[in-house]
Amino acid sequence: MDDQDSKLGKGQPCADERLDSGLDSLREDECSSLAADTERLSIGSTKLYRNEMRSEMGDEPWKRDRSDDGDTFLHLAIIHEAADYAVKMIKQSVNDPFLNIQNYQRQSALHLAVITEQPQIVDHLLKAGCDPQLVDNQGNTALHIACKRGSLSCFSVLTQSCPVELPTLMSAKNYSGLNCIHLACIHGFFSLVESLIQLGADINAREHCNGRSALHLAVDLQNQELVRLLISLGADVNSLTYGGYSPYHLTHGRQNTDIQRQLYELTAHDLRELPESESEDSDDDPMSEDEEMYDDILLVAQQ
């Protein structure tokens, strides 16, 4: 990780969310047709088929129709950043199940609004009754995605608009076992880490794979600035993984001796010796997209 980015609390944007469902779905002439049809809110297309939500959606065909990738016209408007048309459809769908339809990647309109960095659409969706707890095919809520991509604007809208759901959203783990603070740490977004903790996120929460806390992850990434930040915010230096390893144990064999010295001084005396247990790394389980990225960073840090 670049030192300058670390000091500024910034990381590289995560560009692995897919918008395949709509990016190439419309030609230029079709976009013009979509705009005209959306204006009338009476849209039809031979390339679209009707889904099973007819009884819930009423008689508006634009609410029932889906693309070959499972996208609604609202999804397509968000993907193509046609904000005016998206807002019109949202206003026509307040507290309507239509807002929570998910495409075949299980992305809702809210997921797509965060991925495309449209905080104003996020705000409209939440005020209209969109469910912030829906997860995509990787188990990520919209807040997970905001933390993974470092989207401060979308993060602010989500956290301010969902006070009731916020504790659940911050503690929820995706299918890789990572919650929001883990993702913010892995991707190097310091300001989001601080904000999550200020909002009540558990700084010592452990990911499901090996039981690492945010501090363990920071040590594995050899990110000294992040280690210092987490310690200053109250991270438990004596937290143990499922295999009985403290953050200090993970400094062995690593290049950054400053991290090792800092943690040695803070770690309880009886936790300074390495436990006698098998390696925590497992070659048997397939790695998820997040774990592959994390493993790549870890390998670079070890070189």
Rank of each mutant, 00 (worst) to 15 (best):
K7C: 11
G11C: 08
D16L: 15
R18W: 01
D20M: 02
G22T: 00
L23M: 01
L23Q: 00
D29V: 02
S33D: 03
S33L: 02
A35S: 09
T38Q: 01
T38W: 02
S42T: 06
M53Y: 05
G58N: 01
D59E: 12
E60V: 04
T72M: 04
T72S: 03
L74V: 03
A77T: 03
H80W: 05
I90C: 02
S93D: 02
V94C: 03
N95P: 10
F98L: 01
N103H: 00
R106S: 01
R106G: 00
V114Y: 01
T116N: 04
E117Y: 12
V122M: 05
D123R: 10
T141R: 07
G150T: 08
C154M: 12
V157M: 13
L158V: 09
E165Y: 09
Y175Q: 13
I181W: 05
L183H: 01
A184N: 09
I186M: 08
S191G: 07
S191A: 05
S191R: 11
L196A: 06
A201T: 02
I203P: 04
C209S: 15
H216Q: 08
R228A: 15
R228F: 15
R228Y: 14
S232V: 11
L233H: 14
V237F: 13
Y242H: 15
S246L: 06
P247I: 06
L250T: 07
T251I: 12
R254Q: 15
D270A: 06
E280V: 01
D281E: 13
S288K: 04
D290T: 14
E291Y: 10
E292S: 08
L298N: 12
A301W: 10
